[in-house]
Computed example of a mutant assay.
Amino acid sequence: MSIIYFLIGCSVLMALVFLGAFFWAQKSGQNDDLYTPSMRILLDDEDELPSRTDKK
């Protein structure tokens, strides 16, 4: 029966750690811009494309 109390204590502690990490992420601005990252994959990066003028 004492293992149940230990597991409940561990789960409450783990939940508080995750809750603290969530609030820290919100406070530091992790979710400020949700639109730009989803659109970034649709745009081509022209700097990384090989040049076509190098043909021999």
Rank of each mutant, 00 (worst) to 15 (best):
D54W: 14
V17I: 13
C10F: 12
D33E: 06
W24T: 12
S28E: 02
S38C: 12
S2D: 15
K56G: 14
P50H: 04
F18Y: 14
F6M: 13
A15L: 10
Q30M: 12
L42G: 15
L7E: 10
L19Q: 02
I3Q: 11
I8F: 08
L34K: 10
D33K: 02
S51L: 13
S51E: 10
D45A: 04
L16N: 08
N31L: 06
M14R: 03
E46R: 05
G29F: 01
L49V: 05
M39Y: 08
T36L: 11
G29R: 00
D32K: 05
N31H: 07
Q30H: 07
M14W: 12
I3C: 04
L19D: 01
I41W: 14
A21E: 02
S28F: 00
D32M: 00
I41R: 08
Y5L: 13
A25H: 00
I41P: 05
E48G: 03
K56Y: 11
S38P: 01
Q30K: 08
L34N: 12
L13P: 00
V12H: 05
A25P: 00
F23Y: 03
A21K: 03
F22E: 04
L19S: 06
T36F: 12
L42R: 09
Y35R: 10
V12D: 07
D45M: 03
E48Y: 01
D45S: 06
G20A: 08
G9S: 09
T36K: 14
R52M: 12
A21W: 02
I8W: 04
L43V: 07
I3K: 11
D44W: 05
D47G: 10
S2P: 03
V12R: 05
E48P: 01
E46F: 08
A15Y: 01
G29S: 01
S11K: 03
M1L: 12
P50W: 04
F18M: 09
P37Y: 08
I4D: 07
Q30T: 13
Y35G: 02
Y5R: 08
F23L: 13
I8G: 06
M39V: 13
S51T: 09
C10P: 00
P50I: 04
